[in-house]
Design a protein around this nucleic acid. Structure first.
Lengths: 237, 237
DNA sequence: GCGATCATTAAGTTTAGACATATCACTGAA
DNA sequence: TTCAGTGATATGTCTAAACTTAATGATCGC
């Protein structure tokens, strides 16, 4: 067999990815089966082994294949598949929905790290941080409430920034690239303050996204985003 | 410069990834900067261009670099970084928390697709589906309520399975590999039924995960998972 | 029968070279 | 001035070959 030059994914590696995926979905190769080795597939598809290798690595990354030296490549038995989603910049998210973006800083002050934040950022309790609360709006409707703690020890330049002028989200994205990020989703009933800031009623279920980012100097920032009731976060395709 | 054979990621490509990432985090290369081209980096690192190419592609995938033919490679200005998380099998999730897993099928029946489900699965309204409601438990405490619709047209074998015996989640994972999946997170106040099944009180904020999977025959299944109050979903590292 | 040893296998990685292709930048014509 | 054509350039992709490495499984000695 040679590869058909079908319309989709133009590269040979991509075509092999799709062909192998199809074989698995069609159960031609079933969960647990060992599939032909790279050399055989290279002959079958009429390409170099490196090309087959690239394709199979992509599928292994996706979680569809298990690969082990000497043992060969097997179709994953319990494919704990991965989902990815992009963390958007609020302003872009609002604007891409066709709304006019604005934001309002509710509070900005220096403050020692409370226990929960300290533990999340792996800093000693009481470490000096900057605490910022912001409401992000689309067409003057509250869209997201941001409760952010910034660690000046990891980003010294932050001391001289006035976040009333500049969006903290964007300033940090541009000035404090990170090495690692934690991200968790949860749900909470709106407390009185959230309800007021989001212009909704207390007790309403809110989707909460918590994110902490790190560079080699330690935690940069930890942020808790509360979305407007009914908001959904969707993965990429 | 040659690569130091530091303890971590042994492959040359991986070491280049880490070195370039460090340069970006240390702001040696700033947002928007054009970085040296593959050929120059290959000389600098003392490797073949293909190796540099592989490393830079990984960083581009991560969202740290923008690459364009002829234009070169630039540090992303607004890195809309990606997060991935693994979709767990409930039983494994419960067991990895050290609890004993059990599940209880609350209802199983054939039922025509209601409008909302039909639209989510891109099926005609009223299409014949199997509707299943299950409670998943850890140490006999409710952990997750599953409300699932299965499309027999995409998985004919499903007709003969008794989901009182077999966990639908696992049966589908093993017998119906999918090509594409939608996934959304949201928050809802527990209704009377959720509250009763999750052993909590009505109105409590619940994290909701909706997932629909597809193969080449169409939508396989659409499931709505409600987690017990306080549950968090965390991304991979 | 049992365990230690060792050859074999299949994936992992790298290399040098080649060609493809998108796009930038410049040139010259309308 | 503007637009179409053109060449240069950096990334994209592939190849064939070689070497590395983890793990299997067969062999051999006890």
């Amino acid at each position: 067999m040679t590869l058909k030059s079908g319309p989709p994914g133009n590269s040979k590696a991509q075509m092999i990815v799709e062909d192998v995926r199809r074989r698995i979905v069609d159960r031609e190769w079933q969960q647990g089966d060992r599939i032909p080795d790279e050399a055989e597939l290279a002959v079958e598809f009429g390409v170099a082994r490196a090309t087959v290798n690239k394709a199979l690595q992509i599928l292994a990354e996706e979680g569809l294949l298990d690969r082990k030296r000497r043992a060969g490549t097997h179709v994953t038995v319990n494919p704990a598949r991965k989902a990815t989603f992009t963390i958007p910049i609020v302003r872009e998210q609002v604007e891409s929905a066709g709304m006019a973006y604005s934001h309002r800083v509710v509070a900005q002050k220096r403050s020692p790290a409370p226990p929960e934040i300290a533990s999340r950022m792996r800093l000693p309790e009481g470490a000096p941080l900057i605490h910022l609360r912001t409401v992000h709006m689309g067409d003057d409707q509250p869209f997201q409430v941001e409760d952010r703690w910034i660690n000046p020890a990891a980003v010294p330049e932050v001391e001289s920034v006035d976040f009333r002028q500049v969006n903290a989200n964007e300033w940090l994205v541009r000035h404090a690239p990170y090495l690692r990020a934690d991200l968790t989703f949860s749900a909470e009933n709106a407390n009185a303050r959230d309800a007021r800031l989001l212009d909704t009623r207390q007790g309403h279920a809110l989707l909460i996204m918590q994110r902490t980012t790190w560079n080699d100097l330690g935690a940069i920032t930890s942020v808790r985003l509360s979305f407007y009731p009914g908001h959904m976060v969707t993965t990429d395709h």
